[in-house]
Nucleic acid binder design. Sequence first.
DNA 1: ACATCACTAGAACATCGTTCTAGATTCGTC
DNA 2: GACGAATCTAGAACGATGTTCTAGTGATGT
Lengths: 193, 193
Amino acid sequence: MSSSSPSADRRSEILDAALACFLEQGYLATSIADIRRESGASTGSIYHFFDNKGALALALVERAIGGWSGRSGVAVDPDAAAETAIKASVSGLVRWGLANPAALRFLDEVRGLATADASLAPVAGLLARGNEAARARYALFVARGEVRDLPWPLAHALMLGPAYDFLRLAGDRAPPGAELALADAAWNAIRAP
Amino acid sequence: MSSSSPSADRRSEILDAALACFLEQGYLATSIADIRRESGASTGSIYHFFDNKGALALALVERAIGGWSGRSGVAVDPDAAAETAIKASVSGLVRWGLANPAALRFLDEVRGLATADASLAPVAGLLARGNEAARARYALFVARGEVRDLPWPLAHALMLGPAYDFLRLAGDRAPPGAELALADAAWNAIRAP
DNA sequence: ACATCACTAGAACATCGTTCTAGATTCGTC
DNA sequence: GACGAATCTAGAACGATGTTCTAGTGATGT
């Protein structure tokens, strides 16, 4: 696993080309031939490094999530107060989505396809694991008495549902201060009475 | 199977077969060959009545929306109070989604694909028109001073975002009373102070 | 009887994701 | 340095899919 080649790693070239294509045209609309053209690699090379088209998406989703949750900071500190953590999660998500609309569209497309396309099943698993972590986090806040003891699907929906829906609808023309309004609404919807 | 239905319209047979396939396997997973087998019609007949696969989805989405919004009742009465109308919309959506999980999955899949698949563009247009109607409805409530004067994407997100997210996550194991909790939360998030 | 037209049928086509076969390159070991 | 094995690359071939093409069939109006 020693990829010592500084600039010309075929695997990275393919991945970068795939990312460029996926961000520009979306996942479904980009063909393997597109990635072949953009990267200069042959079909055989692409399939040597990645099992299928879905594996390319998986690698890129992992990279995107890494970059996103790595920037979360306080949101994943287990000692942080529920209000701080939840507001940071929601407003962080909204800010990231507004700053990276193409990446958001790609993630949303892949998440939707993951339930229909078998080759994207690993992506579904990855997202399910993230969801499970958030669920455990919420259980901790419940135990501390900071938030209402709601069934998880309901709690998730009240916290993050508005943010997802807003990002899907807002596009580029986003009203200023939306991330604060959404963070406040999320907290008010689940805070302990 | 059914060689001759009572009102054996080829067009209806094809549409019914497509609906059965879409509900069972999803939109992407059903092929034209599947619809051909299920309906007994030939490829030529299918493409005689429908421009492409997306036109089949469009006809079925129209049918589904007609059945859904036809049952809304108070939700579309322009004289109803904002609280009544909004709570009815949200809880009605949740109830319908829980009662028709396959139809919900189909609608959600098609809505997601509509932004990526050109043949589903008419579906995107249909949904955009519905969204515009809801926006006008909200503006009326704002003028009456019943709800907060929020930018529409924000208002939509606060009202319906949780419901959509909940339905996507809840699956079949839905906590009882969820539709009331979501309706209350929607109203509290946008009611005038 | 005949022309028209909606309808049906299935072969043919283009494109896609994926697999196959084989040639080139790199690497560890002598 | 030589050589065999593993890794990597290449592009043709394959199977499936959505769509189009060409050729009918049968009812209807004149």
